[in-house]
Amino acid sequence: MAGPTIDALGQFSLTPGLGPLGRAVDFSNSNEAMLAAAVIIVGIFAMGLRARALIPGRGQAVVELLYEFVHNMCVDTIGEEGLRFFPLVFTIFSFILLGNLLGLFPYFFAFTSHIAVTLSLALFVFVFSTGVGFYTHGLRFFKFFVPHGVPGWLLPLLVPIEIISYLSRPVSLSVRLFANMTAGHVMWEVFAGFMLMLVASFGIFGVFASVVPLGLNVALAALELLVAGLQAYVFAILTCLYLHDAVHMH
């Protein structure tokens, strides 16, 4: 059957961005979205910090809300030592949150749906938190893989399990974000393409029938909004948890 087909994955394809200059330095449409996210974050800080009012206005309240949310997440999860990592966690959280949210807009690129992006973020978190662990505790950090209060004969079994679970952290961290974002965008594209197929196949009846996938996409939009916020939060809180493990070793 000739007519529209569903190209669910084309939305993820990388193309050169920022014109000929970007093409020369391999700056992609994904990086355009990252730049937009960073500029928006810095922009809302600039707007929110303009008044520095005792009683915040709207713009300031947004920045304060974000600040205190991540601040409390750091302190509650890592402890008072967590304030050292607050700028890092804030950068990661706001970058992923803005990336997820920008990806929801039509014609915007969701860079968090790329495994290369999420995996490098997760690997950075993994290497950084492991580095913090060795920096804080030296070689005693290896004790982290030896569970407390376990009979000695179980250790040969448990230590490899602990090591495997530790090493699988970046995989689960990156695949969780990548899969959630990819799945949401694929479903959107599939239902939207289905509407075009219905119209092409059944004419005027297809127009009426396509109300059903349209309604599904509207409901999906609400779900995706939730997922965008939730996955950014999950990534940030897991980063905090890994840092907590590195600092406190339990």
Partner: peptide, 18 residues
């Protein structure tokens, strides 16, 4: 999937720019 297309230099370069 474009995400798995590591032959495309943009896939790895986006990480550098990120």
């Amino acid at each position: 999937m474009p995400q798995m297309d590591f032959a495309n230099p943009l896939t790895s370069y986006q990480v550098v720019w990120m």
